[in-house]
């Protein structure tokens, strides 16, 4: 899959939903040289893209690099963006593609492990003294995070998009370039693996 291409052949923005219209106008303004429009796009999407890529890569430095690549791609392709396409989906698609590319790179994996060893692995929620239920949830949330980090990349991406980003199967298919049926089974397999891990730890 070429994650850097937006794909839509429709023109005109009058009938677009407000979010898409707003994104399209921002991109057009940016393409016309208005850098403030780019900052608006950045403010709108950077946080969620950073969280998403962090969940996929398990490392903030890698997440930062991937999201930088996403925004650079937006800079390059702003003028050619088609109004009916979803900027959000397009950006997530590029991010997913870039994460997959880095995930296959042994050098990147080695860097992540080295940073984890130096810093003390993944960050953990800090709500363990806020009552029994909160403590239990915090423990479960941390265990899920660790189990997700151990999933094969395609399953991890599908799980993160579904459970943390609340994307539909159709959207996940569009973002990852997989068939909807494949998305369905990836999510199911990921859930089974996470569930097994949680059961092993007696958290379910």
């Amino acid at each position: 899959m070429d994650g850097s291409r937006n794909s839509n052949g429709m023109g005109g923005d009058a009938a677009l939903p407000p979010d898409k219209r707003r994104d399209y106008k921002l991109l057009k303004r940016f393409a016309g040289g208005d850098e403030k429009a780019f900052v608006e796009i950045y403010e709108r999407y950077s946080e969620r893209l950073l969280k998403y890529t962090y969940r996929c890569m398990g490392d903030w430095q890698e997440a930062e690099d991937v999201v930088q690549e996403v925004f650079v791609q937006v800079m390059k392709d702003a003028a050619g963006f088609e109004p009916k396409a979803s900027l959000s989906t397009w950006m997530y698609r590029i991010a997913t593609f870039m994460c997959a590319k880095r995930h296959r790179d042994r050098g990147v994996r080695k860097r992540i492990i080295e940073r984890e060893l130096a810093a003390g692995t993944f960050d953990r929620p800090a709500a363990e003294n806020e009552g029994e239920k909160a403590a239990e949830l915090a423990e479960q949330a941390a265990a899920v995070k660790e189990a997700v980090a151990g999933l094969p990349y395609e399953q991890r991406t599908a799980f993160v998009l579904r459970e943390y980003e609340d994307r539909s199967y159709g959207e996940i298919a569009e973002i990852t370039g997989a068939e909807t049926g494949t998305v369905k089974s990836r999510i199911f397999r990921a859930r089974q693996a996470v569930r097994d891990e949680m059961k092993k730890r007696e958290l379910l």
Partner: peptide
């Protein structure tokens, strides 16, 4: 179990906090 998993993914404790320096670095680089 899957309902509990979902709850664990969506509870505030599962929130992902972007370190401010990551956001600042990224913005500066861009």
């Amino acid at each position: 179990d899957l309902k509990k998993l979902r709850e664990a993914c969506r509870c505030p404790e599962a929130g992902c906090f972007v370190p401010p320096e990551v956001r600042e670095n990224l913005k500066a680089r861009l």
